[in-house]
Deep mutational scan, measured.
Amino acid sequence: GKELVLALYDYQEKSPREVTMKKGDILTLLNSTNKDWWKVEVNDRQGFVPAAYVKKL
């Protein structure tokens, strides 16, 4: 099944490779191999968020 993460904080994208999320959002985790930036999918968009801003559910 898909792995989900919870947004712990708001995050505003700073580049086209990133995505914006709001605290409390549930996101689909696509890739967590990089310890600093995790790739997630939110609202049919894929991009990176800081790993410290999310936690695995």
Rank of each mutant, 00 (worst) to 15 (best):
E41R: 10
A7C: 12
R45I: 08
E18D: 06
L8V: 08
N34I: 06
V19A: 05
I26N: 03
D25Q: 15
E13N: 07
T33E: 14
V49Y: 01
D25R: 03
K55M: 15
D10E: 06
E41P: 00
D10A: 07
A52Q: 11
A52V: 10
T33V: 10
R17T: 11
W37E: 03
A7G: 03
V19G: 02
V40I: 08
T33R: 11
T33K: 11
T20N: 06
E13W: 06
K55W: 10
V54D: 00
K35M: 11
D25N: 07
L8D: 02
R17F: 14
G24E: 02
W38K: 01
K14I: 07
M21T: 03
K14L: 09
V5E: 01
L27W: 03
L29G: 00
K55A: 13
G47H: 02
E18H: 07
D10Y: 05
V40Y: 01
K23D: 02
V54P: 01
I26V: 11
G47Q: 02
E41I: 09
L30A: 03
W37N: 02
E18I: 04
G24D: 06
I26T: 06
W37S: 02
Q46A: 11
A7E: 00
T28D: 05
L30S: 03
V5W: 08
Y53E: 02
Q46E: 11
M21K: 00
Q46H: 08
V42G: 15
Q12D: 14
V19K: 02
D44F: 10
K39H: 10
K35S: 13
Q12C: 12
K23I: 06
E41H: 07
D44K: 11
Q46M: 10
V5T: 03
L8K: 05
L30T: 05
Y11I: 01
L4K: 12
F48V: 07
K22A: 08
L27H: 03
K39N: 07
N31I: 08
T33W: 09
W38H: 02
E18Q: 11
V40L: 04
D36H: 15
V54H: 01
K55C: 15
R45C: 06
P50L: 04
S32E: 15
E18W: 04
L29K: 02
S32I: 07
Q46N: 09
K39P: 01
Y53G: 06
F48L: 09
T33A: 13
G24I: 01
W38Q: 01
P50A: 02
K22I: 08
W38T: 03
F48T: 03
K2R: 14
Q46D: 07
K2P: 14
Y11S: 00
I26G: 01
K39W: 15
T28N: 08
N43Y: 13
S32Y: 08
K56P: 10
S15N: 12
G47K: 02
T28E: 11
A51S: 13
K56W: 08
G47C: 03
G47P: 00
K55V: 15
N43V: 12
L8G: 02
M21W: 02
K35T: 11
L4H: 09
L57A: 04
K2D: 08
V49W: 01
D36M: 15
M21F: 11
L57I: 14
Q12N: 14
Y9C: 13
W37C: 06
A52H: 12
N31H: 07
K55S: 10
Y53D: 03
R45W: 04
S15D: 11
M21L: 09
M21I: 14
P16M: 09
G1S: 14
L27K: 00
G1Y: 14
D25E: 12
K14C: 11
K39T: 08
Y9G: 05
T28W: 13
L57R: 04
L4P: 04
E18R: 05
L4S: 07
A52K: 15
A52I: 11
R45T: 07
V42K: 15
E41Q: 14
K2I: 13
Y53S: 09
K2T: 12
V49H: 00
K23T: 06
L57S: 04
K56G: 05
L4Q: 10
P16K: 10
E41K: 09
K39Q: 13
V40N: 00
K14N: 11
T28I: 15
S32R: 08
Y11V: 02
A7K: 01
K22C: 11
K55H: 11
N43L: 13
L57H: 05
N34T: 06
N31M: 09
A51D: 02
M21S: 00
S15I: 05
V49L: 03
L27N: 01
D36N: 14
N31G: 07
R45M: 07
K22F: 12
G1F: 14
Y9V: 11
W38N: 01
L30V: 11
K22W: 10
L57V: 11
K55R: 14
E13Y: 05
N31R: 07
P16N: 10
N43I: 11
E18V: 05
D36E: 12
L4N: 05
N43K: 14
Y11D: 00
R45A: 06
T28R: 12
K22Y: 12
V40D: 00
I26M: 07
V42Y: 12
A51P: 05
E18F: 07
K39F: 15
L6C: 09
M21A: 02
W38P: 01
V54M: 06
G24H: 05
L29P: 00
D36I: 15
P50R: 04
N34S: 10
D10P: 06
E3H: 12
W37D: 01
E41A: 11
K39Y: 15
K23V: 07
L6R: 09
T28K: 11
Y9P: 00
L6I: 15
V42E: 04
K14E: 08
Q46G: 06
E41N: 06
W38F: 07
E3K: 09
V49N: 01
K2G: 10
Y9R: 15
L27M: 14
V42F: 15
R17M: 13
G1M: 13
L29R: 01
L6N: 02
R17L: 13
K2C: 14
L4F: 15
D10G: 06
V49G: 01
P16G: 10
Q12F: 14
A52M: 12
L4A: 06
L30D: 01
V40P: 00
L29M: 04
E18Y: 06
E13R: 13
Y53A: 11
Q46R: 11
K14P: 04
Y11E: 00
T20F: 05
V19H: 03
D44H: 12
W37K: 03
L8Q: 04
D10K: 03
S32F: 07
R45D: 04
L6T: 07
E13H: 09
W37Y: 07
D10R: 03
V49C: 03
V5L: 12
F48R: 03
R17K: 11
E3D: 11
Q46L: 08
P50V: 02
E3F: 11
E18P: 05
W38V: 06
A7P: 00
L8H: 03
P16Q: 10
N34H: 12
V42C: 11
I26C: 06
K39M: 15
K39D: 04
P50I: 02
K22N: 08
N34R: 10
P50E: 02
L29D: 00
A52C: 15
Q46S: 12
N34Y: 09
K23F: 05
K22P: 00
E3L: 12
T20H: 04
M21H: 00
D10W: 04
K35W: 08
L4E: 07
N43E: 13
V40E: 00
L6H: 04
K2S: 10
L6K: 08
K14R: 13
S15V: 04
L27I: 07
F48G: 01
T28Q: 11
P50D: 01
K55F: 11
P50F: 04
V19Q: 03
Y9H: 11
L6Y: 11
E13T: 09
V5Y: 09
V54T: 04
S32V: 07
N31F: 07
E41S: 10
L30M: 08
R45P: 01
D10T: 07
E13P: 14
Y11F: 08
R17C: 14
V49P: 00
S15E: 09
A51Y: 02
N43H: 14
P16S: 12
S32K: 07
Y9F: 13
